[in-house]
């Protein structure tokens, strides 16, 4: 997993609430058996004028110039600013893979759906929940100022604007540690293999039908 320490990047504002995982990556692309290559089809229904299918050359498709990701001023954005309940719907981790493959490193929103939130941390994508008023301010500033960038400083747990405003955020210690070090949590869990075995022995006595 890619580490996340301090990231400064261009911000793209996606002004919709309840952005669901079907919108982030439509189902036809879930037929892939790989983890990579989802970037060109991120927000596919909104980004292109015609329906897409797996296997197409997406660079040849007609793009919807009215969709914010396609505005020239937001090309190369790595910080996605969004509204309430981002990532609701299905558990597809492909949604996170599409965002990271596109180049997004962090999503800032007032709130996230649980499964999406969880999946993000497993892939080095930092989902940041900030208060509604702060998100509102960031939307205003992003829209007003071309080239608007934010710095997300994970060690110090703050988001810093170009004007120097700093907003603190909270994060689980364990998740922070994994992100800072780019750690695969399976390896960490297997360090506790003895505990898992001991649990199984005791549980088997109480509830043998579970084994």
């Amino acid at each position: 997993m890619e580490k996340f320490v301090v990231h400064t990047g261009l911000v793209v504002p996606l002004d919709r609430s309840n952005v669901d995982t079907d919108a982030i990556i439509p189902k036809q692309y879930l037929k892939s058996i790989k983890r990579t290559g989802f970037g060109p089809t991120l927000f596919d229904d909104w980004r292109y004028n015609e329906p897409g299918e797996p296997g197409m050359d997406h660079s040849q498709r007609s793009v919807n110039a009215g969709f914010v990701l396609n505005f020239p001023r937001y090309a190369g954005a790595s910080v996605l600013l969004a509204r309430e309940n981002f990532g609701c719907g299905s558990s597809r981790e492909h949604a996170v893979w599409a965002l990271t493959d596109y180049g997004i490193r962090t999503v800032i929103a007032p709130s996230f759906a649980d499964i999406f939130f969880n999946n993000s941390f497993k892939n080095g994508l930092l989902p940041l929940a900030l208060p509604v008023e702060v998100v509102e301010q960031l939307f205003r500033e992003t829209q007003a100022q071309e080239g608007y960038q934010l710095t997300v400083d994970l060690p110090n747990q703050q988001v810093v604007t170009p004007a120097g405003d700093a907003f603190a955020f909270s994060i689980d210690e364990f998740r922070k540690y994994c992100l800072l070090n780019g750690l695969d949590d399976i390896g960490l869990t297997l360090q506790h293999a003895d505990d898992i075995r001991a649990y199984e022995v005791q549980r088997k006595q109480q509830a043998p039908w579970l084994f």
Binding site: S90, S91, R92, E93, I115, N118, N119, I186, A193, I196
Partner: peptide
């Protein structure tokens, strides 16, 4: 529900 990384985690660790 869980994501694919967690699917792998449960497969490998039962947790």
């Amino acid at each position: 529900g869980i994501g694919t990384s967690e699917v792998e985690h449960v497969m490998a660790t039962q947790c």
